[in-house]
Simulated assay, not measured.
Amino acid sequence: MATTQRGAHPLAPLVLDDAGSLEAMAAAVMRLHSTLMSVGRCYTTDATGDRAALELGRIESVLAGAFCTIFGQSPTDRFADIFDQATYVAEHMVKDQIFEDCNKRTSLVFALSVLRLVSSPVVLSDSPEAKDNQYYAWIQDLVSGNRSCADLAEELLRGCVAGTGDPSHV
């Protein structure tokens, strides 16, 4: 990822303006989805052939919209910070229903993985009870539109700050 860059601010959006980085990230999403399907209770199997190619193309489209410069506009121009960018990715992956099953899990885990990749891990309540699980509530609110993407990005930021134990992190 030689041309991968971040803005001067440590929480600036991630910019991936080379095809290799985008392809590697899309392949990582496909592997993540496959892994989540094998450990979760999913009702379909991995896609093959034309379906797999279609899924990969749709993932690349979402990732390009989030991480690449488009018509001269950098992700740093389109997103307030990495949390806004991760929320955008999750929203588009889950609402586009890229996969036959396991869209919410894949979208959530990928968004959190992007934040961890840039040293901004998020810590939310991971209660076994769905009503008390902040990760579950976050993805459900994203899907249903119960909260705005800006509100959801702010929750990720708060979870990052809480996870570091250092409010000066931001």
Rank of each mutant, 00 (worst) to 15 (best):
M30K: 13
S107I: 08
P167V: 15
S113N: 07
T87Q: 03
A2T: 03
D17I: 05
A150L: 04
T87R: 02
V118M: 10
N103E: 07
D77S: 12
Q5R: 15
E155D: 14
L36C: 05
M25S: 14
A162Y: 12
A162S: 09
R6H: 03
L157Q: 13
A47M: 04
Y88G: 03
L115T: 01
L14R: 13
S61R: 07
V109T: 10
A66C: 14
S107T: 06
E60I: 12
H33Q: 14
A24F: 07
D46T: 09
A8G: 00
T76E: 13
A130G: 00
V89Y: 09
K95H: 12
G40E: 04
P121V: 02
R116F: 01
L63P: 03
A53P: 00
F99S: 04
Q5K: 11
D126Y: 04
G165N: 08
V89D: 08
H33C: 05
A86W: 04
S148L: 05
A28G: 13
Y43M: 06
A53S: 07
A150H: 04
F83R: 09
E60V: 14
E155P: 00
P121G: 06
A27W: 02
D126G: 12
F110L: 12
S61G: 08
G20M: 08
Y88F: 15
C102W: 03
V170W: 05
I98N: 03
R31T: 08
P167H: 06
G20V: 13
T48K: 14
D166Y: 11
T35G: 04
N146H: 07
F79H: 13
S119A: 13
D96H: 10
D151S: 15
S120K: 10
S61P: 00
F110I: 01
I98D: 02
L157Y: 12
A2D: 01
G49L: 11
P167S: 12
G57L: 06
L14K: 08
D132L: 10
K131G: 00
D101N: 10
V114G: 02
E55D: 13
L112E: 00
R41D: 08
E100G: 15
